[in-house]
Amino acid sequence: MARFGMVIDTAKCVGCMDCVVACQTENDVPHGHCRDWIVTEVRGTYPTLEMEIRSERCNHCDNPPCVYCCPTGASHVEPFGKTVQVTANRCIGCKACLAACPYGARFVHPEGYADKCTFCLHRVKEGKDPACVSVCPTRCMHFGDLDDPKSEVNRLLGSRKWHTLLPEAGTKPRIFYLD
């Protein structure tokens, strides 16, 4: 069974937010909310600077605190791709998962349930990439099976330096950022 993850090349990402807009239209994300977003991190003092731009979203962690804390099983690990998903009609809206996520990846949908990135499973099931990946003008995002040693994501992870977000939180995130 696959274990989906993403590899994002920060050297190429320009932070144009296309991934955010594509997610909004693809998934009817309610106005004023976002399932993915852009973080810009600047280090240094003028004029000696470094900047990393990242497209961020749910990390579909191997060790997902949001799933662990969910009292109803609404937040669960979907067998397909071992992705973290929310079943709206099992969610009671306790918001524990929002507090449990160190990445702030979740929000409360105006209809009351917890919502977040699904890795566009509906597209993936059709053999397509998630909307954010397939729209990216810089082609900096790569989606694939981390359990498949021959997958493009694994090839990239093997060939470049990378980091994940807040590894100290122990969540084992599955979005990898190439330096």
Binding site: E78, R90, Y113, T118, L121
Partner: peptide, 21 residues
């Protein structure tokens, strides 16, 4: 295997995108 996903997700993916595919 039942797909325990969001209602809207089901509505869109099963009916709409399935048809498109």
């Amino acid at each position: 295997m039942p797909s325990p996903s969001r209602r809207r997700f089901l509505k869109i993916s099963a009916a709409t995108l399935g048809a498109a595919a």
